[in-house]
Amino acid sequence: MQQIINFIIRNKNFLLFLLLFSISILFTIQSHSYHRSKFINSANFLSGGIYNSAHKISTYFNLKSQNQLLFEENKRLKSLLYNLENTGHFTYSDSLLLNKSYYFSNAQVIKNSYSATDNVLLINKGTNDSIQQDFGVITTKGIVGIVDKTSGNFANVISILNSTSSISAQLKKTSHYGSLTWDAKNPALVQLKDIPKIAKVLVGDTIVTSGQSSIFPKDIPIGVIENYNLDAAENYYEINVALFNDMTNLEYVYIIKNTNKPEITNLLNE
């Protein structure tokens, strides 16, 4: 017994090192598995608060370009509104009557990241604004990611620029679908895999979300095909997709809640 205690005292530095090192490796391994991740995350009072106050200052620097983006979106929505076939008969006074299956709320990105292999964003809405795990996040131009951990006022978003993220996407023209992943090399290019060889793929074709995941609605734009080749087994295409979104200057995002989701997951689990 004496010897064991002596051994521990003699090697206390090494044992402490071993303990702390294994704890950190454990955290690392957890963070590499999707959605069981992040015991330590930035959606908390301290880091969220610091990022929020820093963002209040830095947000002034790109007001002009963000204004331009909102302006363009307004233009697009206006043209949609006035070109509807039965114009002039909007008499909805209560939004509940619309019986929407997707609810949108807006948020601001207060921490962006695109240089690591597993990028996670931080937005300034949380459970107090009824944001929950697995809500989709998009901008006016295309998709951004999926909400992961939430706290009262902040939420982490797993970006599409994350090696654990995999989003169902399809060719807009022919509806062949595959999964969207990222090879951690270029923040402007993502990879679409598992598109069958039989599909007609052309450079410049548009890629949209497939609506199969119950997170994103169908037909949200993602990007266009930059180039493509067959995989090693020559059965499926591997396609490089140039994103519509500039993931390096995200500011205003929309969060999508699918109100039918509990029903869909229930049905699938039966």
Partner: peptide
Amino acid sequence: NDMFLDSGGIHAA
């Protein structure tokens, strides 16, 4: 650092 960067435990290790 890991908390701020959402990187699991890589900086700690």
